[in-house]
Simulated assay, not measured.
Amino acid sequence: MNTRGAILRSAPGQWEVTDLVADDPRTGELQVKLAASGLCHSDDHVATGDMPVGHYPFLGGHEGAGVVTAVGPSTPGFSEGDHVVFSFLPGCGRCRYCANGQQYICDSGANLLVGSRWDDAESFRFQTSDGTAVGQMCGLGTFAEVTTVDVRSTVKIPDDIPLEVACLVGCGVGTGWGRRCRPVRSGPGTPSS
């Protein structure tokens, strides 16, 4: 499918919007038309080169939400028209970490910044118009109009949740999950923080 997306050709570099070709989904994959994508500080770290990636050109974006437009063969649980949000941390549900309730360190996430599919370093789902393979940030690449993703990073959500709000859950909540906050108290005789 022809689409457009923001890629980096090198780092440090600038995001460049260009024509891309997204592959049809394979088994265990979905194609999704993005409704919204967040811009995270991690995307800036990739552009400055502070967070190196494994393959250029590289399609940015790792938090987004949209509508499923195609479902790969033998991929149960999803249908065209489903609303989904992406998780930058995949969860296979079967590895030792997922089985022990530690989905945040799923084996599938070991190669998030390589740009290829997690289980095959030579397998990409995007190409430039001249056929050059394009890596996807966290296997997602939400800086595109349409993306092809693995179901391990996809969560179906109710249709009444606004997609522009849901997209922020894919990184913002996952990143802030372990943060501990203490209330700030102020007033007469109370120390303020």
Rank of each mutant, 00 (worst) to 15 (best):
S108A: 12
T27P: 13
Q102H: 14
E16K: 01
I161E: 05
D44V: 15
G131T: 08
T148Y: 07
S79E: 00
P73Q: 07
V71H: 02
V184R: 11
W118F: 15
S116T: 02
K33P: 02
T128Y: 01
G101S: 05
E145N: 03
V184D: 08
V151T: 12
R94V: 14
T175C: 11
P73Y: 04
H45S: 10
G109T: 08
A36N: 06
C92A: 06
Q102N: 10
H83M: 09
L20E: 00
C40P: 04
Q102A: 14
E145K: 04
A166L: 09
I161W: 00
P191E: 13
N111G: 11
D23P: 04
D43I: 05
D50S: 02
R117H: 14
V155N: 03
G91F: 09
D50F: 06
G109M: 12
R185F: 13
G131H: 05
T132R: 11
D160E: 12
T132I: 12
D160K: 10
F78K: 00
H83D: 04
T27Q: 15
G81Y: 02
E145I: 05
R117P: 05
H55G: 15
Q102S: 14
W118D: 13
V21S: 13
V151W: 01
S74R: 14
G139A: 13
E80V: 15
F126T: 03
R96T: 12
V151E: 03
E145S: 06
R9Q: 11
Q127W: 00
W177I: 03
F126L: 05
F126Y: 00
C138Y: 08
G115E: 00
V134N: 01
G187I: 03
H83L: 11
T18R: 03
L112N: 04
G178W: 01
E29M: 10
G178L: 10
C95N: 01
V155A: 14
G72K: 03
G28Q: 00
F124K: 10
K33M: 10
R180P: 05
R185G: 07
P52G: 05
F143A: 08
C138H: 13
T142S: 15
T18M: 02
S129F: 10
G174H: 08
T175H: 09
S186P: 06
N100F: 03
S42I: 13
S37F: 05
P73A: 13
E164H: 08
N2W: 12
S192N: 10
P12N: 02
D159G: 09
C95D: 01
I157D: 02
T142I: 12
R152N: 03
G131R: 11
V84S: 09
Q102I: 11
P90L: 14
R182Y: 09
L168W: 02
V114M: 07
C167G: 03
H41R: 15
G61C: 07
E122L: 14
F124G: 08
C106R: 08
L89C: 08
L8H: 00
C181I: 07
T154D: 07
H41C: 10
V114Y: 00
S116L: 10
C171A: 12
V85H: 04
A144E: 02
D19W: 04
L168F: 02
R125F: 13
H62S: 04
D120F: 03
T3L: 09
P162H: 08
T142W: 10
M51T: 04
